[in-house]
Design a protein around this nucleic acid. Structure first.
Lengths: 198, 198
DNA sequence: AAATAATAGTTTGAATTGAAACTATTTGTA
DNA sequence: TACAAATAGTTTCAATTCAAACTATTATTT
């Protein structure tokens, strides 16, 4: 797809408009220019991106990513954990966990051990090498955030935390029963069908 | 990796402990049990997951994902956009945009047109099919969030929005200059080296 | 006890994401 | 004008993420 050829159709379309982000965009006007929903979503996208970038930096500098570190810390703190407990603990699906554990196991930071009680379950244990890493661990995002938060008055810290937790509630509730809201009829399905046959 | 064999080493390790998420976990104690940083991070992970799950549901029901819809709406609103403007607009890297546009183009919702002024730039235009989809669009996450927020008193809405925007500032600032905080020495690099040779 | 259902972990497939390396083009400089 | 540097978009690569389908094991039902 788009193999870097110069054979695209020509234009004569008005040039790309100057968009709002040309203006320094962490400055919001006192009077909201857009809806709260939009601003929340915009913020969330940027937060998600910041988390991802942090993880990549971690990966560059310490050869361990954010999710990997999160799993390692959880196993270190709680002792051996099954895949599903770990999934619940850090709010990821089991299929996601498997890949992360694969990579941690490759690096010999954890190991899988099958239970003899119930041979379906796998216990994930931290290795000595894993413990070594944890004890001299790179400051996880958590601590960095904590440090950043400490620069604010405590009332504000509390406000931020409880706001976030409220958003979580809203979004997770939405996930369960926003389906009726989303189902605007299957018109769109007809417009955009899987095979895109004209 | 872990090809579903039964040959793993046996255990005799204490069984996986009962972890906190066994307890209904959107209920937080009045007295914080953990640090603010941890709670913020926990919330962020859950929010990120909720966004992802929403996108998947959208994809199931309407054959368009969240990021795809975000791009489509941006192009619809601003008129033809270049890849880099679009990247700035929705806070994603250009390489990410390319993949998303590829898929939108496959579905004939947008098209690429190379500028004749400057043959390096590609303008992304919405097609009639794209406009049709937008006009009867599935409620984007933005609106769903807005609806959810409307259930709260406005003061609270404002608090939430400004808290989120504060977090954005903290995290994006951190992204720029938290490097010194993160660099805890290269010890970890020695513990976990790329090739894991013993 | 045999058949069925439930559970635990895994694999597969697709989308998203960004850094780094790359191609093509334009701009700036010697 | 020729050469270097900057810019725009792309490709490649790896990690994350989840649903759905799958294997192996345990629990339940008939």
């Amino acid at each position: 797809m788009s193999e870097y050829k110069t054979e695209q159709p020509e234009d004569e379309i008005k040039p790309a408009v100057i968009i709002s982000s040309e203006i320094p965009d962490s400055e919001y006007p006192a009077v909201p220019r857009t809806s709260y929903g939009l601003r929340v979503l915009q913020s969330l996208r940027r937060i998600i991106r910041a988390v991802d970038l942090h993880s990549r930096k971690l990966s560059m500098q310490h050869n361990i990513t954010g999710p990997q570190l999160a799993c390692l810390l959880a196993v270190n703190e709680h002792g051996p954990l099954t895949v599903s407990s770990l999934a619940r603990e850090i709010h990821l699906s089991p299929s996601t966990i498997v890949g992360i554990i694969d990579r941690l196991e490759q690096k010999a930071l954890v190991l899988r051990r099958r239970s003899s009680q119930d041979r379906r379950v796998i216990n994930i244990e931290i290795t000595s090498k894993g413990m070594e890493l944890v004890s001299s661990a790179p400051s996880p995002l958590q601590e960095t955030l904590a440090k950043a938060l400490q620069g604010l008055p405590e009332i504000e810290q509390i406000t931020i935390v409880s706001s976030l937790e409220k958003i979580v509630k809203l979004m997770e509730a939405e996930g369960i029963d926003a389906a009726p809201i989303l189902v605007t009829g299957s018109l769109v399905n007809k417009l955009v069908d899987k095979k895109n046959k004209p």
